[in-house]
Design a protein around this nucleic acid. Structure first.
Lengths: 209, 209
DNA sequence: GGCCAACCGGACGGGGTCGTCCACTTACCT
DNA sequence: AGGTAAGTGGACGACCCCGTCCGGTTGGCC
C-alpha cells in the first residue's frame, strides 16, 4: 500500500495525489477528471498515471481506509453490550459516512465489484453484521422478518437521499434512517412484501445494461 | 404538442423518434446519446435535432404525459374516501412508476427545473398532495409530524433503491415503501430528527456545484 | 406529371475525458 | 562531484458526445 522503493520526490507526489483525490472525491463525487486531480495535486497527468495505472486503481487506493473504517463500525456494533443499540449505531454511522463523503458512497457502492480487497472486507463486514442482526433479534428488539437485504436497501435508499441534496443531505439522511429504524423495531412489525434478492455485493452496478 | 403543419414523412419520423426515445430512456435512464436514439429511430441526427432543437426539449416532450399521470395519481388520492388509503396508494403508485421507467425518475427528478410545464404540474401535484396529507392526519392515521419534505425524502430514497438494481428493483422498492408507510402511521409515532428543508422542487440538482 | 419547398441524412467542428509517449530533470549512490 | 536510473510534465492520439451545415431527396399541391 505504501511502496517503500520509491524515490523521495516520487513518494511526496504520490501523497499529494492521494490527498487531492480524497478531497475532490469527497466534495464532488467520483466523476472527477483525472486531469483535475493532477492539477489540484500540482503534478502532471503522466505522474498520476504512472503511480496509479488506471482511474480505478486510484479510487481503490483512496477509499481503502474508509472501507476499513466501515468494517470497524461493524466490529463496534458487535462489541456493544446492547445489541439493538449496536445495530442502530452502526447503521447511523455508516449513513453519516455516506453523507460526509460523497465519493465514498459511489466508491464502493457503484464501482469495481472486482477489487479483491473490497470483496474480502465486505464479506467480513457482512458476516459481522449478520451476527449483529442475529443478536438484535434474539434480544427481541429487531423484527424477526428483517433480512440482510434490508440493510442493502437502507444503504441504497440513503444513497438516493444523499445524492445531490447538498445542504439538506445530512438532515434528510438522519430523518430517513430514523423512520426506517422505527419500522425495524420488533413491536412495530406488520406483514411486509418479501425482501429483494440483494446482497451487499449487489450495491454495485448502477447501470444494468 | 402534435404540430399539424408537418408533412406526412416528417410527422412519421417524429413519432418514430419519440417512440425510440421513450424505449431507450425507460430501459437505460436519461443518459442515452442523441445519436443512439436517432439510430434506433432509423433517422439521421439532423432530423432529430430539427424536430427537437435540444436534448432537453426531447426529454420534456417524452415525459410530459408521464408527469401528467403522476399528477393524476394525486387526484385519485384526493378522490379516495379513505384518506389514509389514498395516501398510501398514491405513494405506492408513484414509486412503482419510478421502478417501471428508469428514465422517468431522472427525467423530472434530476433534470430541467426550468421546464415551465413541469413546474406548473409539479406545483399542482404538490398542492394536491398537501391536502391528501392534511386529510390523512385529520383522520388520525398519518403521524402529525409528517412533513411534505418527507415525501421528497421517500421519492429520493426510492430513487436510490431503483437505480441500477435491475431485477431486484421492484421488490426492493415495494419493501422500502412498506417499511416507510409503517413508520408514517400515527400509532407508531416517536420523536424524529427535524425534516430536511426539501420541496419537491429540490428533487432536482444532482450536482450541488 | 411537374415543381418547389420542406425534409432528409451523413459529415463536420467544438468540447471533453482517458491514457500514452518522449524529451528533459533530478534524486541518490559511489 | 558526477553518472545514471528513476521520475517528471506537457503534448498527443483515440474516443465519445452535442449540435450544425449542406448537398441530395421527396411529399404534396397545381
Amino acid at each position: 500500500m505504501e511502496p517503500a522503493g520509491l524515490r523521495a520526490d516520487a513518494r511526496h507526489n504520490r501523497d499529494r495525489i492521494l490527498g487531492a483525490a480524497r478531497e475532490a472525491y469527497a466534495a464532488r463525487g467520483l466523476d472527477v477528471p483525472m486531469g483535475a486531480i493532477a492539477r489540484r495535486a500540482g503534478v502532471g497527468v503522466a505522474t498520476l498515471y504512472r503511480r496509479f495505472p488506471s482511474r480505478e486503481s486510484l479510487i481503490t487506493e483512496v477509499f481503502g481506509d474508509e472501507l476499513a473504517t466501515c468494517a470497524a463500525v461493524v466490529d463496534e456494533a458487535l462489541a456493544d453490550p446492547d445489541p439493538w443499540h449496536g445495530f442502530c449505531a452502526a447503521i447511523e454511522k455508516v449513513c453519516a459516512m455516506q453523507v460526509a463523503d460523497r465519493g465514498f458512497t459511489d466508491a464502493f457502492l457503484t464501482a469495481f465489484p472486482e477489487a479483491i480487497d473490497y470483496e474480502r472486507t465486505r464479506a467480513r463486514a457482512e458476516r459481522g453484521f449478520a451476527e449483529v442482526i442475529r443478536r438484535a433479534k434474539a434480544a427481541g428488539r429487531l423484527r424477526a422478518d428483517f433480512a440482510m437485504a434490508d440493510l442493502t436497501l437502507l444503504l441504497k435508499a440513503n444513497c438516493g437521499v444523499t445524492d445531490g441534496a447538498g445542504q439538506a443531505a445530512a438532515a434528510g439522511s438522519r430523518r430517513l434512517v430514523a423512520y426506517l429504524l422505527q419500522s425495524f423495531r420488533a413491536e412495530h412489525a406488520e406483514p411486509l412484501p418479501p425482501p429483494p434478492r440483494l446482497t451487499l455485493a449487489h450495491l454495485h452496478a448502477p447501470t444494468p445494461r
